[in-house]
Amino acid sequence: MSDIALTPPVPVTTEAPLIRALLIGVALIFVALFLFAPLVTVFVEALRQGWVAAIDALRLPDAQAAIRMTLTIAAIAVPINAAFGIAAAWAITKFDFPGKAFLITLIDLPFSVSPVVAGLMLVLLFGANSTLGGWLIANDMPIVFAFPGIVLATLFVTFPFVARELIPVMIEQGRAEEEAALTLGASGWRIFFTVTLPNIRWALLYGVLLCNARAMGEFGAVAVVSGKIRGETATMPTMVEMFYNEYLAVAAFTLAAVLAMLALLTLLLKSLLEWRHADLLAATRRH
C-alpha cells in the first residue's frame, strides 16, 4: 500500500501538454482548411465586385428561375420524404413482417447508387426512347427534361435521410410506450400523435433538415434528368455550374452563396429550436 502512496499521482486520462496542443492544433487546422476556408471563399468571390454586382447577378432571370425551381422542388420533396420516411421507420421498428431486411436494404439503395446513375435510370425509364416515356410524351405528360423528372430524381436521392435518422431512435425506444398507450385505450392515430411523434421529433427534425439540404443541393441526378434548360429546368446547383462554365464568376459564386446561406439558415433554425426547448429536451432525454 505504502509504495503506491509514495508515487506521485499520474493522470491516466490526459496526454502530455505538448501532445494535447498538437492534437488540438491539427484538428483546428483541419477544420479551418477544409470546412471554413471554402465557405468563406464562396462569399469572398461572390462579393469580389461589390454588393451591387452580386445583387445584379441575382436579378438575372435565369438565376431567379433557378432559385424558384430549387425552392419548389424542396417544398415538394421534403414533406413527401418526411411522410414516407416516418411510415417506413414505423413499419420497420414497430412490426415484424417477412421481407423486412429487404425493405431496409431498399431504403439504403439511394445512398449506394451514384446520383448520376439514378438520373440515368429515370431517363431510361421515362425518356422518349422507352415505351412508357413515349406514351407519356404523346399524352403531354413529359417527365424527363421537365419538372416531374426533377422531383422524382430529388425524391429518389433524398429518400433515405428521414428513415435512416428515425430507425435507430425508434429501435432504441422499443414498443413499450405504444403498448402502454394501447392498454390505456388509445387508438392508433392517437398513439402516433401523442406518443410516437413526440418521442421522435428531434430525430425527425434532424432528418428533415438533412433531407432539405440535400434536396436543395442535389446536382448529379438532377443534372442528368433535367437537361439543364435555362429558365425552365435549371436548379440552383446546375445553374451555378452553367454560370461558372461561362466565366460568369460573380453570378456563379453569388448563387452558390445563396445556396450556402439556405443551408446555414436551416442549421440556425435547428439550433434555435433546440435552444427554445432546451428544458423539455433535458427532461425527456434518457439518463
Binding site: 413499450a176 410506450e177 403498448e179 402502454a180 398507450a181 394501447l182 392498454t183 385505450g185 388509445a186 387508438s187 401523442t194 406518443v195 413526440p198 418521442n199 423539455l280 427532461a283 425527456t284 434518457r286
Partner: peptide, 18 residues
C-alpha cells in the same frame, strides 16, 4: 386491447417520457 380495459403495468413501466 382497448376493449379489454385491463390496467397493465410494464416491466420497465413504459411511462411517457415527454
Amino acid at each position: 386491447v382497448q376493449e379489454r380495459r385491463a390496467g397493465f403495468v410494464f416491466q420497465s413501466y413504459a411511462l411517457f417520457k415527454h
